[in-house]
Simulated scan of single mutants.
Amino acid sequence: MTDDVFEPGPDLTPATIRALPKVVLHDHLDGGLRPATLVELAEDAGHTLPETDPDALATWFVTAADSGSLERYLETFAHTTAVMQTPEALRRVARDAVMDLAADGVVYAEQRFAPEQHLEQGLTLQQVVDAVQQGFDDGVAEAESNGCTITVGTLLCAMRQADNAPAIARLALENRDRGVVGFDIAGPELGFPAARHREAFELLRAESFPVTVHAGEADGAESIWGALQVGALRLGHGIRLLEDVELPEHEPLSHARPGRLAQWVLDRQIPLEVAPSSNLQTGGAASIAAHPITTLRDLGFAVTVNTDNRLVSATSMSREFSLLVAEADWTLDDLEAATLVAAWNGFAHRDVLERIVAEQILPGYEAVRAG
Rank of each mutant, 00 (worst) to 15 (best):
F347V: 07
L242V: 14
T295E: 12
S313R: 02
D333Y: 12
S322D: 09
T339D: 05
W264D: 13
L332W: 02
P292F: 08
R257M: 02
P276T: 06
T331C: 10
T307D: 01
A290H: 12
A286W: 01
A328D: 03
F321D: 03
L296D: 07
S254V: 11
E249D: 14
V352F: 07
A337H: 14
H255N: 13
P248M: 05
Q269F: 08
L247S: 05
T307H: 01
R350F: 09
E273V: 02
R240Q: 08
G284S: 08
L340D: 06
D333H: 12
D351S: 15
G284D: 05
D244F: 14
V325D: 06
R310I: 01
A328V: 04
H349K: 13
E336T: 04
Q263S: 14
G300V: 06
I270F: 02
R310H: 05
A326Y: 01
V325L: 09
R297M: 07
A314P: 04
D329H: 09
N306P: 06
A343I: 08
W330E: 09
R240S: 07
H250W: 13
R268W: 13
D333I: 07
S254Q: 04
W330V: 03
P258S: 04
E320W: 01
S254W: 03
R268D: 10
D334T: 15
D267R: 14
D334S: 12
T331V: 10
S254D: 09
V341C: 02
A337W: 04
Q263F: 08
L296K: 09
A337C: 04
G283L: 08
S322A: 15
A343M: 13
L299N: 03
R350Y: 13
T295L: 09
D244M: 10
S313T: 13
A348Y: 02
G283R: 10
W330C: 04
V274N: 08
V325H: 06
D333L: 06
D244A: 09
R268S: 11
S313F: 04
L335A: 09
L241H: 01
N306Q: 12
R350N: 13
L261V: 14
V245F: 12
T307N: 02
S277G: 03
V303E: 11
P292R: 10
D333A: 13
L242N: 00
M317G: 00
A342D: 09
E251I: 01
V265R: 06
Q269H: 15
H255I: 01
V265K: 11
R297Q: 12
D329N: 15
L324W: 04
S322I: 03
L311D: 09
L280E: 05
L280N: 02
L299A: 04
T282H: 01
E327P: 00
L323E: 08
S277R: 07
T331R: 06
V305A: 00
Q281L: 14
A289K: 06
D333V: 12
G300R: 01
G346R: 07
Q269R: 15
S313M: 03
R297F: 07
A302I: 03
Q263Y: 09
V325S: 05
N306Y: 10
T339R: 02
A286E: 15
E251F: 10
E336D: 04
W264L: 15
L242F: 05
A337F: 09
G284N: 07
